[in-house]
């Protein structure tokens, strides 16, 4: 059993039926008698496996099917086709033994009772998830300390800031020490320092419990800091599976070699560098060259020879830029597809 992956999907599908009509009075009246339904595939034939203890991030544009996939894995939605196994269970059966070993935290939905202190909801979850009292006390103390919550848990939830509320939501979700933790946009709308605190906490939880982590986030830093493996999902399909480094190199195969310079090179030197790669920046203060990975050593040697060169760096393209490029590319592919559709 230990070898079985924590999560495995085989051809998982989820379709939603949505009604649609044109705006305006006549279409509205027409819709009285005949409503038009469209089947939308939110998840289409998704297959992958996640091993125990892995930290995986889902990336994709809005509406790509990331959250739907999470909800399918947590057993909230009933799949339209295919098969999912999580910890050896079919999530859609929603068996108590299964639910006691997972947790789903959603940044945009709260479970804490609005008018009561968080402690009251914690107490409810202790009962519901059957956590022995001493274990509960210990975990609560540990987490409130890690998250620096102190007296916050004794205040009515409606009086808390967004960040404090999210911290309490995390505590409520983790009191039963789930082995698989699903996080849907856990840091949405928060300032940078709060994002950092929550990220740190999740990483610490993973370290202490060896839990399997599946995360979606709009903030690339979240994903980069927490996840060793990335799954890119678009239009309900898997279109990349690998590490962040691989993703970057796939989208931007060139690497950037940069130095700090004090004066601009003359034309002849620039032309010589252009033989090696693309000139991205022509300083001062910086000179950067995007080159094929194999030519990096050669380029490094050449750039160091530039008079007054300092601070040499070899870097991958920034993640945000990579994502923007990835989604822009996919969007243009999509538009192309609709064009042909219209023509037919």
């Amino acid at each position: 059993m230990a070898d079985e992956p924590a999560i495995s999907l085989q051809g998982l599908e989820k379709n939603f039926r949505v009604s649609q009509r044109e705006p305006g009075l006549w279409p509205a009246i027409r819709a009285l008698f005949r409503r038009e339904w469209v089947e939308v595939a939110a998840v289409a034939e998704l297959s992958f496996e996640i091993q125990r203890g892995e930290r995986v991030g889902f990336l994709g544009p809005n509406g790509a099917g990331k959250t739907t996939t999470l909800k399918l894995l947590a057993g909230l939605l009933y799949p339209s086709g295919g098969r999912a196994r999580v910890l050896g269970f079919d999530p859609a059966d929603r068996r108590p033994e299964f639910l006691r070993r997972i947790a789903l935290v959603m940044g945009q939905k709260r479970q804490l009772s609005w008018d009561l202190p968080s402690l009251d909801t914690f107490e409810l979850n202790r009962v519901v998830f059957d956590v022995p009292r001493e274990l509960y006390e210990r975990r609560l103390a540990e987490m409130t300390e890690l998250l620096d919550l102190g007296e916050v848990v004794r205040k009515p939830v409606r009086t808390l800031s967004l960040g404090e509320r999210m911290k309490c939501e995390l505590v409520a979700a983790l009191l039963h020490a789930p082995e698989v933790l699903f996080l849907d946009e856990p840091t949405i709308g928060m300032d940078v320092s709060m994002q950092l605190a929550i990220r740190e906490f999740i990483r610490e939880y993973h370290r202490r419990h060896g839990a399997t982590l599946v995360l979606t986030s709009h903030y690339m830093e979240d994903v980069a800091a927490l996840c060793e493996r990335i799954l890119v999902i678009d239009e309900g399909r898997l279109c990349f599976d690998g590490s962040i480094g691989e993703l970057v190199r796939r989208i931007r195969p060139l690497r950037r070699v940069a130095i700090r310079v004090t004066q601009r090179l003359d034309e002849g030197q620039e032309r010589a560098l252009e033989q090696l790669g693309q000139l991205a920046l022509v300083g001062p203060p910086r000179l950067a060259l995007d080159v094929d990975p194999e030519r990096v050593p050669e380029v490094v040697a050449r750039l160091l020879a530039v008079p007054g060169a300092r601070d040499l760096e070899v870097q991958d393209a920034p993640l945000e830029e990579v994502m923007r490029e990835l989604f822009a590319r996919r969007a243009s592919v999509r538009e192309g597809a609709t064009d042909t559709g219209d023509g037919a």
Binding site: P23, G24, L25, A28, I29, A31, L32
Partner: peptide
């Protein structure tokens, strides 16, 4: 008025 009719139809 037209908005109201459309809303009423939507919430029929």
């Amino acid at each position: 008025w037209r908005l109201g009719v459309a809303e009423a139809t939507a919430y029929r």
